[in-house]
Design a protein around this nucleic acid. Structure first.
Lengths: 222, 222
DNA sequence: CCCTCCATTACGGAAATCTGTAAGGACATA
DNA sequence: TATGTCCTTACAGATTTCCGTAATGGAGGG
């Protein structure tokens, strides 16, 4: 089994929970903790210099801003940076993210080894994931496995998310178009925005904008 | 120090984290866990019947829905029900909720003994809270201490909540008016509904209906 | 090269939203 | 009783939403 593990997670209680699971559930005791990305990176580099390498990184994706200015603010940057100093490091991401396309991206772009959704039953999932990754497997979360064949995945791209974000802030389509134009983001015509939102209505079976935002909020996508 | 503690929190990892903090940070070892409100309630009743009472309940507020139908779905109901069988039980709420008025409500209506905000530094807060509550203190989170004087509490009645509910389901004001009339709920004119919603705009500083629902969803009121 | 598909864009009209003004009634208070 | 406040209701006008149709243009397949 893995010997030396780093847990990067800004919420202390969750951090402690992961440590406890690794301890009690898997029998890993050489566990180091980091609450900030930069901290995690420094710990990795030090271990590298000392020749006492980590075997596994378990990291969150989002880290709250800190009083001290951090260079890295997301787990993605952390993983990229750590890979430059230790390319073969095994990585498990433990995060709230539930958008299939985004999780997929982690596997494809960052070649992470496992993903565990923060959720009610993450203990079992986490244990299975660590074991699987140790055996060299790629451990995809159940959420993603279910949706692999049934392509009912509502694939929201960044533009859709941007629109939803703006709508939930109470901006009108006219205002959104203006914002997009000022930021040089395309497409940015009112009619395209209109069409896109209509498509989201279809996707989520929403009756109107308000309904759409309510649904998306409930799904935790926003 | 407290001897027997129940931790009610649906997210396993967070649950484990709390247990570890109580263990390592405070030295409490007789800790029981529950992932669902009903489960917590049953454990309390059993302890009560056995005469081996709990000294402290640490509970979350929101619990995700379960495949099994749960009677209680929120920590608030749990606390109310547990108080009926053990009125003097000490209660600490550990939750994401950050709205001062809602937290205040917990202290006033439910007479909870302590509140800890889920956050980056909850370990220290949790330890201090448990210690404070043990000494008979009422432990208010730092967040609330700041806002004690500025009492900008928004008071929503059932009618407001009903409107928000309907809006978030995508019904138009015309439809809502029709529904209210068919259910003999007054007031039910379109104009009053309109006015009420406008008042909610003011209360929540919302720009339009969509914005309003987004805000209210974020606040966890819906 | 042509054809199809799809995204972007424009436009128009019916419906809904948002924001005023205003009138009538309930209720408390001086 | 008179007065002020608040809630309910009505109405009207400007704006926005929602949902069609339609023109344009790029990507990809035959």
């Amino acid at each position: 089994m893995f010997d030396k593990v780093l847990v990067a997670e800004d919420y202390e209680i969750a951090n402690q929970g992961i440590v406890k699971v690794l301890n009690d559930g898997i029998g890993i005791h050489n566990i180091h903790e980091a609450q900030y990305c930069d901290d995690a990176y420094l710990k990795f580099r030090k271990a590298n210099l000392d020749g006492d390498l980590f075997d596994l990184l378990i990291t969150d994706l989002s880290f709250k801003e800190n009083h001290k200015k951090q260079i890295r603010t997301s787990g993605i940057e952390l993983i990229e940076d750590i890979r430059t100093i230790q390319p073969d490091i095994k990585v498990i991401v433990y995060s709230q993210e539930s958008r299939p396309d985004r999780i997929n991206m982690l596997f494809e772009k960052l070649a992470i080894n496992g993903y565990v959704c923060k959720g009610q039953h993450s203990v079992k999932e986490l244990i299975e994931c660590v074991n699987g990754v140790y055996q060299g497997k790629k451990v995809v979360p159940p959420l993603l496995r279910d949706h692999l064949d049934t392509n009912t995945i509502i694939n929201l791209d960044d533009f859709d998310m941007l629109l939803l974000e703006e709508l939930s802030c109470g901006f009108t389509k006219k205002e959104i178009a203006a914002t997009l134009k000022s930021k040089n983001i395309t497409p940015n015509s009112e009619s395209t925005i209109d069409k896109r939102i209509s498509r989201l209505f279809d996707n989520f079976k929403a009756k109107n904008t308000t309904h759409l935002v309510a649904i998306v909020k409930d799904l935790g996508l926003l």
